Every structure is written in C-alpha cells, then in structure tokens.
Simulated assay, not measured.
Amino acid sequence: MSWSDFYRRREVLDRALRQARRTGGRVTLAEIPGGYDVFMNEGELLLALQHKWNQLLTGRIGLALDDLDHGAHGAAEDDRVDAISRAWRETARQNPELRAVLDAHGDAFPEQLRAGRDVELSMLALNAGLASAAEPADKIRRVGTALLNLIASTPTRPAGRPRGPVAQLRRLLAPAG
C-alpha cells in the first residue's frame, strides 16, 4: 500500500464515521465518496473499522494496565477488571460513531467481523486476568463476551455497590446450583 492509498483509505474511513454520525451508526458504501475506490463492499469497510477499534482499544488497555501497575502493586483481580472496563468505556466515549457503526452492523456482517470481534473479546478476557492464554480460544471468547456484556450494560459502578464487575461476572459464569 502506498502512502497515497493509505491516505485515501483513511479519508474513506473518516467519511464513513461522519456518515454514521448523521445516520445513527448506519453506513452505506455507495453514499461515501470514493468508497468503492478503496473497499470492495461494506464488509471490507466494516472490517477496517473493527481493526481501527481494536487498535484504539489496545492502546487504551495498555495505558490502563500501565497506570494500574505503577499505581497499585499487588492490585486485586477486581482492579484489573475495573481498569479494562474503564478502558473499553473510555474508548467508546471518545469514538461514539465508530462504536455505533460496529454495533449497528455486527449482526448484518457476522462473518466479516468475527475475527476482529474475537480479537476484541480475547483482549478483554486476557488483559482483565479472567482467562489464560493456555485456555481454549472459545472459552476465552466466552469469558470476553460475558465481560463485554457487563461493561456495556453497566456504564458506571452502581451506587452503594462495593463490588465491581468481577463479582457480577463470577455470578454469571458460576454454574447454577
């Protein structure tokens, strides 16, 4: 990819996010100037947007874990989960159109987005310390899915609840008995 191609691709991604701002997260490649010059279809565009999301989230998680490591040696598991939860929420807050596009199109393009989504879920589970890289990939993704569901449904820690999302996650993952 030449620099010219890189900048054209980035401009189309920016146009897609501007379109998403106007449409509540829906993007249509045909309505994006230059869209078909860069991407073959909406699936390719969404894959590029998922990759962009994963890059932003990776950076934010890295910062959160670095802050945790330097601020609280011997931090509890709850602290790691809270740090990862805050990182995801902050990434979503700073990139609302990007998150809206992925949420709006995830069901329509599951095959194209699966690999990128799996990366996101694994990143959450592993960095939160809720799964180990030695575990089967499907188990890591299930844990990541449970954590993401908690993050998305609990934007901030509810008042009066001393426990963070780890306690909620344990309740979800614990076998009924």
Rank of each mutant, 00 (worst) to 15 (best):
A108C: 08
A115K: 13
A87C: 08
I151Q: 00
S132Q: 11
G129Y: 06
R99C: 02
G106Y: 10
V101A: 15
S132M: 08
V81A: 11
R80V: 15
H105K: 10
A134P: 02
A75K: 06
A115M: 10
A92L: 03
P96Y: 02
G74P: 02
G106F: 09
A125N: 00
D118F: 06
P96E: 08
R142G: 01
A108E: 15
R86I: 09
L130N: 01
H73G: 13
V119H: 15
A115S: 14
R117E: 12
N95D: 00
E111P: 03
S132I: 01
L126H: 12
T145N: 05
L147F: 03
A125K: 03
G116I: 08
R93I: 10
A83W: 03
W88L: 07
A75F: 13
R114C: 05
E97S: 11
S85I: 06
E77D: 11
E120N: 08
T91M: 04
L130K: 12
T145S: 08
A133D: 09
R80Q: 09
E77Q: 13
L113F: 02
A108N: 11
K139N: 11
L147I: 04
L130G: 02
A76P: 11
L113H: 01
S122G: 15
D79N: 10
L150I: 02
G74T: 15
L113W: 02
R114G: 08
R86S: 09
L102K: 09
T145M: 06
P96F: 05
N95Q: 08
T91E: 03
E135S: 13
A137S: 07
L130Q: 05
R86T: 10
H105S: 03
I140W: 08
